[in-house]
Each structure stands twice: as C-alpha cells, then as structure tokens.
C-alpha cells in the first residue's frame, strides 16, 4: 500500500525525536510504533501526529509523557516460568564455576525481571558474587525498577509464576505489603546497578556471563535487532549465555553463527568460543 499522510507524520516525528532529544525509534518495528503513537495522540489530546510533534519539539516536558507510550513494556515477575526453571537447572550450574559473575538485564523496564533474577540467584547462593546491570532507555521506568514497588493485585500472579519456576523460597519472604502495594526488599537490589543504556545508540560496557533480553527486540526492525545482538556478542564472555523471549530467535541475525543453541525450547543461547 502507498504511504499515507499518517505514516509520513510518524516518520517525521521519529526523526524529530532523534534530532532534538537523541531518542532513536527510527528502526523500531513500525506497526507497533504506529499503534503506540496513535494511542498517545488520542490520549494526550492532539488532533494529528504533526500536532504532537510540534508540542514535543517545543516543550521538553511532553517528552517523558510520550516516552511512556513509546517504551511501555508490560511484564510480570518470573514471566514464562519455564525460562527461569531452565536458568536454575541448566545455566546456573555453569555460572557456579566462576568466582564472580556479571548479569545484564537489557531493557529492564519496571524491573520485574531484575527482582526475579535476584531472587533466583539468592535461592541458588550466587547472589553475593554477582553484579547485576539493569538498563533501560526510559528514566521513569528505571526509577520504578529501582523502587521495586508493585501493585498488590499483581503479586498473586508473580507468586504463581515463582512457584512454577521451581522457586525454593516463598515470594512473600522478599516483600512488605502495605496500602495495596508490595515493596521488594533493598537486599534484592544491593548488587544491582540501574543505568540508562540504549541498545540502539550505546556500546559495550562490561563483560557479561549472562544477558537476559526478553521481548525487547521484537520491537526492533531487523537492522536494529542485528545491532543489539552484535552488542550482546561483544559483551558476553567466552561461553556466556544469552536468554531471549520465547518467540524470539537469532535465526534472522548475521551473528547467528557466533552462538550455539544451548536450550532451544527456552531460547537460551551460548556464545561459541572464542
């Protein structure tokens, strides 16, 4: 189909966001971006995407509100419990052989997976030798992740997932409930570094033993996916592990040959030597 005026407006807005604020969504999968921008336009009360662009260019206060639509990520603790079970049973035995560990949760959003991994590593006695890097491009999401406070009505699902993942403790050991909210213990983030990092524009920053980046790259186009996977390749230590979302794969990537399928069913890959 030929390009509509709205498609052109979206292209221009993404270019404007990049030029003005260096947030680069130009290589995000366009169909989802279009849904999100259409939603943002409606809820923020603009007649057109161009009107939204005008406002965000001239009013930096509009940027975080727009980012909330563009980067929204809905997750839950221990989402896909079998993934965490696989990490526990098959990946952690390898990690255990290292005296110190680095784990990167790339695109951590509001932190559900950060706390899930912290609990898993505590249960397996590896927490104290690990540094976790939790990164995202959205500063508000990072602040939420660092706060570790979730609505109490989500906890039942989190608890169910934790049990299904083979959890050895009770999730309630790790949070305090009050006023309809569950606040997770500081002890779960004492070894977590929360940081602004973009898979689109930033570079390798440490050597990792495990990278978990789930349901982040489905929002990228192939070019951008390939850049991110290259970044993971460059960040992983020899024989390091990469965990993706259950419907993601390295199949379409030029870096595919650098990885072995460690647990194909769970989309856990291992970097080949060297």
């Amino acid at each position: 189909m030929s390009e509509t005026i709205e498609d052109l407006e979206i292209q221009l807005l993404l270019e404007a966001l990049y030029q003005r604020y260096h947030y680069d969504f130009r290589h995000y999968a366009r169909a989802s971006i279009k849904r999100r921008l259409t939603q943002a336009r409606g809820q923020l009360g603009f007649p057109t995407i161009s009107a939204l662009q005008d406002r965000v260019l001239h009013d930096p206060a509009m940027l975080p509100r727009l980012l909330d639509f563009l980067t929204v990520q809905v997750s839950e603790m221990f989402r896909d419990p079998s993934y965490f079970r696989a990490l526990r049973e098959h990946v952690l035995p390898h990690l255990r052989t290292y005296p110190s560990l680095k784990v990167w949760i790339a695109g951590c959003s509001a932190g559900e997976e950060v706390y899930s991994l912290a609990i898993l590593f505590k249960e397996e006695g590896l927490y104290d030798r690990t540094i976790f890097y939790a990164t995202d491009i959205n500063p508000e999401a990072l602040a939420e992740a660092e706060a570790g406070v979730y609505a109490l009505d989500r906890i039942r699902k989190f608890t169910e997932n934790h049990q299904k993942s083979g959890g050895k403790s009770s999730l309630s050991d790790y949070y305090t409930a009050a006023y309809g909210r569950a606040a997770f213990d500081k002890g779960l983030r004492s070894r977590v570094v929360f940081s602004d990092h973009s898979l689109v524009t930033d570079a390798v920053f440490a050597e990792m033993h495990l990278i978990s980046c789930r349901n982040v790259m489905i929002y990228f186009d192939r070019t951008l996916q390939d850049r991110a996977i290259g970044l993971f390749r460059g960040s992983l230590t020899r024989k390091g592990f990469l965990g993706l979302g259950s419907k993601e794969s390295l199949r379409f990537s030029s870096h595919a040959s650098a990885f072995a399928e460690f647990l194909p069913g769970e989309k856990i890959y291992q970097k080949r030597e060297p």
């Binding site: 999968a29 929204v72 990520q73 997750s75 489905i218």
Partner: peptide, 11 residues
Amino acid sequence: EADRTLALSTD
C-alpha cells in the same frame, strides 16, 4: 508490517 512481514508484541 508494511513490508508484509509478521511482527509480535507484548503490548
């Protein structure tokens, strides 16, 4: 997508 590839989302 416009290029007739499929895309998934967890929105």
